[in-house]
Design a protein around this nucleic acid. Structure first.
Length: 447
DNA sequence: TTTTGAGTTGTTCGA
DNA sequence: GTCGAACAACTCAAA
């Protein structure tokens, strides 16, 4: 009998540059690609309907892509330990491959899977994939992880970037393995309330291609203006792995080569990929950030947590146009421009004095690209509690941010058509006095 | 071990 | 209107 391996898809829903899949196909005659719906993850409060919808559509696309290379996707629902064990027994596979996931839940789960494999006497193979530079690759001279971005990024740039893995031309899979149809969104207990962006590997690659042809060469100059829509919009695809970060990196390097005059602009785009690695690495080495401040002293901050103010923020009716337009973009599209993420997170924490964790959770509920590491890093940065946070006294003024980054009010008008009518609310707080309160709140814990 | 330089994305105040 | 300093010292990283 030909040796068989299972390949377990998780956050790597692609055939291109999929290191774990490429290795399984190279080393085994037959490969059984599978995906497990984990009820534990599906019921988590951080799992928004939007991402479940994006996941389902991406799996549908992946399933078709697998059929094009002669294979198919096995789908199961249940605890991964049990389902994978059952699948291994049924298929008489002798190995299980997967790409590593750095989140605390995944690390613990995957350790359990390793034990299951040990018990079954099959090989468990984890391959690094999520970062361009895996956590252990970028360390300080003394072997400990960085906690400041700039020196991290300098060390990151000294490392060779791993090359891309070949896309399997054909995958041989045994027939007769039991599978279930992909569940519908409704069956998983969710409904979608916003349009679904383009999904699947093809869509992701098309987006990358067109952004590299026109867009990336002016990334630095245009990225802060939400009305210009001048960013790549690849974040949900990076989140679910319908495109790999190495593929994006390689494309940007090629664009830089082709257009040296734009190299500074493109370098800023590349540094965003380094930020992605940085926050994943922080989460890996300092998992306590998921529940509290990176610096314990800031766990003592006395947030006011006024529920009515929080609700007004969520619904985009704070009376601060830039904040409200941004929140409405999030609510109506499942995505928010990065400049606006900074503005609304500064506003929630430092103008409304609401705990950053409430905002973090709301973002996770609404974002297509919601990712624990990046979202947590961004929120702790804005709140001033993080590894490499901005100083606590650097408090965004929502009005001057609007003047700077939406000078003609086009973005605001797009999401707040009633901006000039009486139905638009007056500001729910006074920025000047809230700012002073926040400074006092921080002073109290800083002694 | 000690020292030195530096730290994503700002705002406000007063000369 | 423009400009530099203050915000507040602290921690990190590297020599």
């Amino acid at each position: 009998m030909k040796p068989r391996a299972l390949f377990w898809f998780r956050r790597d829903l692609r055939l291109n540059d999929n290191p774990g899949l490429a290795r399984a196909v190279r080393e085994y005659d037959e490969v059984i690609p599978c995906f497990i719906f984990d009820p534990e993850l599906l019921k988590s409060p951080d799992t928004g309907a939007r991402r479940v919808a994006f996941l389902l559509a991406s799996l549908e696309s992946l399933s078709k892509n697998l059929e094009h290379v002669g294979s198919y996707l096995i789908v199961r629902q249940g605890k991964p330990e049990q389902e994978l064990a059952a699948l291994a027994r049924e298929s008489r596979a002798s190995a299980l491959f997967w790409n590593g996931d750095l989140e605390p839940y995944a690390l613990k789960r995957d350790e359990g899977i390793r034990q299951v494999c040990l018990g079954l006497g099959i090989k468990a193979v984890e391959v690094a994939d999520q970062c361009i530079q895996a956590p252990g690759q970028v360390l300080k001279g003394d072997g400990t992880p960085y906690a400041v971005f700039t020196p991290y990024s300098k060390a990151w740039r000294l490392q060779p970037v791993p090359s891309l893995c070949p896309r399997p031309r054909s995958i041989k899979s045994p027939v007769g393995i039991k599978t279930v149809p992909l569940p519908s969104l409704k069956e998983l207990g969710h409904t979608l309330d916003v349009p679904l962006p383009a999904v699947g590997e093809k869509a992701a690659h098309d987006m990358l291609k067109s952004y590299m042809q026109s867009g990336v060469e002016s990334y630095q100059s245009k990225r802060n203006f939400p009305d210009l829509d001048a960013t790549s919009r690849l974040s949900p695809h990076l989140r679910f792995g319908t495109i790999s970060p190495r593929t994006v990196h390689a494309a940007a390097m090629a664009a830089k080569e082709k257009n040296p005059r734009a190299s500074k602009e493109i370098e800023v785009f590349l540094s965003e990929l380094i930020w992605r690695d940085f926050y994943k690495t922080i989460l890996f080495y300092f998992p306590h950030v998921t529940t509290g401040s990176f610096r314990p002293v800031y766990n003592d901050l006395e947030w006011e947590n006024d529920e009515a103010l929080f609700q007004a923020w969520c619904e985009g009716r704070t009376g601060y146009p830039m904040v409200d337009a941004a929140m409405r973009q999030l609510n109506q599209t499942g995505w928010m421009h990065n400049r606006l993420r900074m503005i609304v997170s500064s506003f929630l924490t430092k103008d409304l004095l609401v705990d950053w964790r409430k905002g973090e959770r709301y973002f996770m509920k609404q974002l297509y690209d919601g990712d624990l590491a990046a979202n947590n890093g961004g929120w702790q940065w804005a709140a001033g509690t993080g590894t490499d946070a901005q100083p606590y006294f650097r408090i965004f003024n929502p009005a001057s941010q609007a003047e700077k980054y939406d000078p003609e009010g086009r973005f605001i008008e797009k999401y707040i058509p009633e901006i000039n009518s009486l139905t638009y609310p007056a500001p729910i707080v006074d920025h000047g006095s809230q700012r002073i309160k926040t400074l006092a709140m921080f002073k109290k814990v800083r002694g």
